[in-house]
Structure formats: C-alpha cells, structure tokens
C-alpha cells in the first residue's frame, strides 16, 4: 500500500515524469523533487497563500493539491513566470514600492497578481485587495503591495494605449 504512483506533468514548460508517494503535495513535489524552492510552504493548509502556483492557467494553493492530482496538468511556478519575463514589471514595481520586506509571501503574491493582471484593464484597489484576500503578508501592511500591482496595471494599460 501507499506505493509510489507514476506522475507526468509540465512544469515551467518542461515535461516532467516522476514516481511520487500519494501523500506528497504539489508544493512538496515542486520544492523537494524538482528543487523549485521559489514556491514557499507556510501554513500548508490553504490559509497563507505563499504556495500559490498557476495550474492550467489559474492560481491554486499547491499545498492543497496532491501531486498525483496534477497528472497531465500544466504548472507554472514563480520561477517560470520570472524566467519568461511575465512578471518583470511586477517585480520592478514591488522593488520600487517596497512591497516586500522579508519576502516569504512574495512568490504567492506575485502569482496571484500575475493572474489578476492577465484579465487586462486596471483593477480597482478593492478588486486587488479581493484578489489578494487569500495572501498573508506580515511585513508590509499590504498598502505597498496594492500600490505596486496598481502601478503595474496602469503601466501596462498605458503601454497598450500607445500607437
């Protein structure tokens, strides 16, 4: 019983095949098996949001998904988003607005902010706060995070508006 189960999925554009113990969460699989430690594990019960990753195009808590449930899925972690430049403006804005201090929550916040901004347009501050309602940050008081996301949304909207 509890024998390893074959698992095949795509992580940051790379096809991966491994055998995993059924109890392994996607978060632990990413961190321990694939050594993608940008995904952080905080509460490991879906409360803190540090472990958010993109799964088939939407943000999910990787601590609340068993790795075996991700069979065939397309996963993108904060490393993948960073390396392909998808969150470059967000990262720059976080830096400029001091939207992080210890940085523990930042990968999850970036993944959620990326998902929100993918809808296009400029979300209201209330929309941004609602989207981040599942992300805990114990350093910033959130105001700077909301600033950074809003700034990035305005930047992108302005860039799109130019000829």
């Amino acid at each position: 019983m509890s024998a390893p189960v074959p698992l095949a999925l795509t992580v940051n554009g790379v096809e991966v095949a491994r055998a995993v113990a059924p109890r392994t969460t996607l978060a632990d699989f990413l961190r321990l098996d694939l050594e993608l430690t940008g995904t952080h594990t905080g509460c490991e019960m879906g409360a803190c949001g540090a472990c958010l990753v993109m799964m088939d195009g939407v943000p999910v808590h990787s601590c609340l998904v068993l790795a075996v449930q991700a069979e065939g899925a397309v996963i993108e972690t904060v490393e993948g988003l960073s390396e392909r430049g998808a969150i470059a403006e967000l990262q720059q804005a976080f830096h400029q607005r001091n939207a992080l201090q210890c940085g523990f929550c930042t990968p999850g916040v970036l993944v959620n902010a990326h998902a929100l901004l993918e809808h296009g347009g400029v979300p209201t501050r209330e929309d941004i706060r609602d989207a981040l309602s599942g992300n805990y940050c114990r350093c910033t008081g959130y105001e700077a995070i909301v600033d950074a996301i809003e700034t990035t949304a305005r930047l992108r909207a302005g860039a799109e508006g130019q000829p």
Binding site: G49, P59, V60, H61, L64, N112, D130, S133, G134
Partner: peptide
C-alpha cells in the same frame, strides 16, 4: 466562498 484560489479547485 473562501478565496479566489480555493474557488479554482
């Protein structure tokens, strides 16, 4: 119901 990322799953 919960938060957006929970609602995705």
């Amino acid at each position: 119901v919960a938060h957006p990322a929970i609602r995705n799953r």
